[in-house]
Write a protein that binds this DNA or RNA. Structure first.
Length: 478
RNA sequence: GGCCCCAUGGUCAAGCGGUCAAGACAUCGCCCUUUCACGGCGGUAACAGGAGUUCGAUUCUCCUUGGGGUCACCA
């Protein structure tokens, strides 16, 4: 049997991390087995449609490398891949189900259902099968009369329904707890309950990979497969990704979409790598994986049964790992826009790249890190105190005067020249490098902490600006 | 509330009857060092509780507790 998996989101907004992970696992399982990964859009709820939602889904999957073999925008042999375009198929199937006694027409009004609820004191109540007893003639008469109707699944009340899930194992649910759910809505659109079964069957989906919220309703879908004489797919339900101990990560919190993470300066490779490991482990201690390596290593055995809390710290660490592993040219190219937007053009990108590469964890940290190059921050003369180098404001004056004199003499103002000259100066003054360089760095940057030291900063600022900042410090200290 | 599922450090997690209970993130300390990072080394930190089964339970069973899911003309 050819392995075919699908990712079937509803276009209700951006793609959140939990959904992306489901897509990832479905993709990995298909590719691991040399099969097909299909994208299907579940848009049967006309009230929840969001403009551009489909585009975001297409773009995100392509951007992350989760290339689907079949889908709305790429076609395929089992289309259409948008449910609203398959309406007739669901209607026909629903009627077939009625023929076979597995479903029935229901004319109950929303008001009646509402009342059923109220009579139960607001507690959860099952539909009372009120319309199951309607005669065929009456059904036909009422349909002809233009009455609105839905089609409900006819579920027995005795015994249990069972199936085996590849991650959760044997699942057994009492039939008495299941409701005669609606398959076809009064607007002629199917509910998920019908549509997912029909589509998975006709699209020849072999493995259904989805969130575990469907764990206990899956027996109902199985009854549909059985009633239609269709072969059931294999089920792989996934535990949810949580924001914290009790809350699921979802769109409602606004910070959980793929695009938000990219916007916050994370690399797509790191995001994919991180979420792959949220709820799955390869069985060894390896943590850094490319998509190809994930495809190779992925297996069902490593999927966890319990919810995992999304840990931003770990994602950030992983992102930093990716950044540090970049070759210098790639890093420079990626960092350039962030550097320019922070300090403008005119600074030596090679030096900056070298300084920030081991120091940033996300791209967005660049701006704050190097802003001092453009504008010298207001700072306090207490910055010139440093215990380790035994630096004081008084000594700083001497050091800065000496340093300024040397720097002014320099013809080439590059890192090597400045370095040599400062080392020589420290030797001449018979002080430790640190005592000379501490006040210099403070004067040049106005910050206690900087990426790189006094020498690199001086080279970046250039001679003129360096001297100007030293003079500023000297005037503050006098 | 009924039903389904889950339960190892703060987090991700390995473990699948006998281990001093891995590893990673975070955290703390030390080293490196012209600040901060990077890097290196080390520390703190867990089997939810109670009954069984067994020579022996983190591991198997049951109960309790805790958490998640579900009970829609949403998916």
């Amino acid at each position: 049997m050819r392995v075919r998996t699908r990712f079937a989101p509803s276009p209700t907004g951006y793609l959140h991390i939990g959904g992306l992970r489901t897509a990832l696992y479905a993709y990995l399982w298909a590719k691991k087995n040399g099969g097909d990964f299909i994208l299907r859009i579940e848009d049967t709820d006309r009230n929840r449609l969001v403009e551009d939602a489909c585009e975001i889904i297409y773009r995100t999957l392509k951007d992350t490398g989760l290339v689907y073999d079949e889908g709305p925008d790429v076609g395929g042999d089992y289309g259409p891949y948008i449910q609203s375009e398959r309406k007739q198929l669901y209607i026909d199937t629903a009627k077939e189900l009625v023929e076979r006694g597995a479903a029935y027409y229901c004319f109950c009004t929303k008001e009646r259902l509402q009342k059923l609820h109220e009579d139960a004191g607001g507690a959860a109540v099952k539909y009372d099968k009120h319309c199951l007893s309607l005669s065929k003639e009456e059904v036909e008469r009422r349909i002809a009369a233009g009455e609105e109707y839905v089609i409900r699944q006819n579920i027995g009340t005795e015994g249990t329904a069972e199936y085996d899930d590849l991650v959760y194992g044997h699942i057994s649910v009492p039939l008495a707890d299941m409701e005669d759910q609606i398959l076809l809505k009064s607007d002629g659109m199917p509910t998920y309950n019908l549509a997912n079964v029909v589509d998975d069957h006709y699209m020849k989906i072999s493995h259904v990979i989805r969130g575990m919220e469907y764990l206990s309703s899956t027996p109902k879908y199985n009854m549909l497969y059985d009633a239609l004489g269709w072969e059931r797919p294999v089920y792989i339900h996934l535990p949810p990704v949580m924001k914290d101990k009790t809350r699921k990560l979802s769109k409602r919190y606004g910070d959980a979409s793929y695009e938000d993470f990219i916007g916050k300066g994370y690399l797509k490779e790191a995001v994919i790598n991180y979420i792959a490991l949220l709820g799955w482990n390869p069985g060894d201690n390896r943590e850094i994986f490319t998509l190809e390596e994930l495809t190779e290593a992925f297996d069902l055995k490593g999927i966890s049964k319990s919810p995992s809390i999304f840990d931003n710290d770990k994602l950030t660490w992983m992102n930093a790992e990716y950044i540090r592993a970049m070759d210098d040219e790639t890093f420079k190219k990626k960092a350039a826009p962030y550097v320019v937007s922070s300090v403008g053009e005119g600074f030596d990108l090679d030096i900056i790249a070298g300084l920030i590469k081991p120091r940033i964890e996300t791209w967005n940290q660049i701006g704050e890190m190097i802003g001092f190059l453009r504008d010298l921050p207001e700072y306090d003369t207490s910055f010139f105190f440093n215990k380790k180098t035994k630096c004081t404001p008084e000594k700083s004056v001497d050091m800065l005067i000496a340093a300024k004199e040397e720097l002014e003499k320099l013809r080439a103002f590059d890192v090597v020249s400045i370095h040599d000259s400062m080392i020589a100066l420290a030797e001449k003054l018979e002080v430790k490098n640190g005592l000379l360089l501490w006040p210099l760095r403070i004067a040049l940057s106005g910050q206690l902490v900087t990426p790189g030291g006094a020498i690199e900063i001086a080279a970046l600022l250039g001679k003129e600006e360096s001297i100007r900042r030293i003079d500023k410090a000297l005037s503050m200290l006098s």
